[in-house]
Amino acid sequence: MTPRDASENDRDHSSSRWSDLERPPLNAAALRRGLVREGGLWSDVDVVQRTGSTNSDLVDRAAAGTAGEGAVLVAEEQTAGRGRLDRQWSAPARSGLFFSVLLKPAEVPVARWGWLPLLTGVAVAAGLARAAGVDTALKWPNDLLVKVGGEERKAGGILLERAGEGGVVIGVGINVTLRAQELPVPTAGSLALAGAVSTDRDTLLRGVLRSLEDWYGRWRAAGGDAGLCGLQEAYAAGCATLGRTVRAELPGDRAVVGEAVAVDGDGRLVLATGEGVREPVGAGDIVHLRPAE
């Protein structure tokens, strides 16, 4: 997810729901009507104006028994959003989609749950392609990339956290209308800067959640077998990391440099090193993944 230090100016600016007419609020009632249905995955859609972290809030709700599988929590503004390794990030109110979902894939072996962030990436990319007309590539393991001026930019990210016994919360952050002067770093981007045909966040959220419901259903029906349900192939097709020489920085000051040649059946990135060794790297082990110098 894209880090950004929110200024007091941003907080003051977001005090009114209509303070920025180019960034209208989400329509919670319409989202519930469009997504919550009998027999469907999504059981509730709750939109809050501001929170620290939708992931933390939904984990707490799951622990308290006030949220079940398919609960969706969306924030118009996050003030303490987190990426991997507790990296902090925030963004202007209503400039993006900041949401978390609670899933309970009881019929899938826990060993295969590592595919869930990758599955979410595939679903988000497919949903945005249809709803925003933007090609979104995936940087293993959890970044969403768009092209801005011919350059790859990070427009969002995904974070998975365990939620008690048998549950996981998956958080998604997507920069939708972030402007050039609001970018936290030159390598950040947004759907608007990538030329999206639509930045209507209601439409985008519905498209992403419907895509996620579809992919989650396929994966769950296959018992979490990413090859059998087509997820492994779909992820590889959209993964911008494959075919590039990268440096994987691991705990203990260890690093592996090699060409990213595959994503294996466990969702690990396989690096072909200069010594002719193929070394798989798990998302839980990675500290940084960067282009090799």
Score class of each variant (00 low, 15 high):
Glu107Pro: 01
Gly252Met: 04
Arg206Ala: 15
Gly238Cys: 11
Arg61Ala: 14
Glu38Ile: 06
Leu193His: 03
Ala126Phe: 00
Leu119Tyr: 03
Pro117Lys: 10
Leu118Met: 11
Ala240Arg: 13
Ile174Ala: 08
Val101Gln: 02
Tyr216Pro: 02
Arg153Met: 10
Asn9Cys: 05
Gly81Trp: 02
Arg210Ala: 08
Arg37Leu: 06
Val74Asn: 01
Ser43Gln: 13
Leu26Arg: 01
Glu165Phe: 00
Ala221Asn: 10
Gln78Val: 06
Arg61Trp: 06
Glu151Cys: 03
Gly150Ile: 01
Gln88Phe: 15
Ala236Glu: 12
Leu85Asp: 10
Gly81Asp: 03
Gly217Lys: 12
Gln88Thr: 07
Thr136Arg: 05
Gly39Ala: 09
Asp214Ile: 01
Ser95His: 06
Val124Met: 11
Arg210Gly: 14
Ser100Thr: 01
Gly157Thr: 04
Ala240Leu: 14
Leu31Met: 06
Val134Thr: 07
Val169Asn: 00
Gly65Phe: 14
Arg179Gly: 05
Pro184Trp: 09
Val101Trp: 06
Ser90Gln: 09
Leu41Ser: 01
Leu31Trp: 02
Pro105Met: 07
Asp214Pro: 04
Asp46Val: 15
Thr136Tyr: 13
Leu85Glu: 11
Ser95Thr: 04
Leu116Asn: 01
Leu102Gln: 02
Glu213Thr: 05
Leu58Lys: 05
Arg87Cys: 03
Trp140Cys: 00
Arg17Val: 10
Glu279Cys: 10
Ser19Trp: 11
Arg32Trp: 01
Arg218Lys: 15
Glu8Tyr: 08
His288Gln: 10
Gly243Thr: 15
Trp215Asn: 00
His288Ile: 00
Val257Gly: 02
Leu183Asn: 05
Leu160Trp: 03
Leu85Gln: 14
Val263Arg: 02
Gly267Ile: 03
Arg50Trp: 09
Gly39Val: 07
Arg201Tyr: 06
Ala236Val: 13
Trp42Leu: 11
Arg4Tyr: 08
Val176Ser: 05
Ala132Trp: 05
Lys104Tyr: 08
Arg23Leu: 11
Thr273Pro: 03
Ala236Ser: 14
Gly52Tyr: 04
Ser100Gln: 07
Thr51Ala: 14
Ala125Cys: 06
Gly150Gln: 02
Arg244Trp: 00
Arg17Tyr: 04
Leu183Thr: 12
Glu249Leu: 13
Asp285Gly: 09
Val277Phe: 12
Glu77His: 12
Ser90Ala: 15
Ser16Leu: 13
Leu159Arg: 05
Ala62Ser: 14
Trp219Phe: 15
Glu22Phe: 09
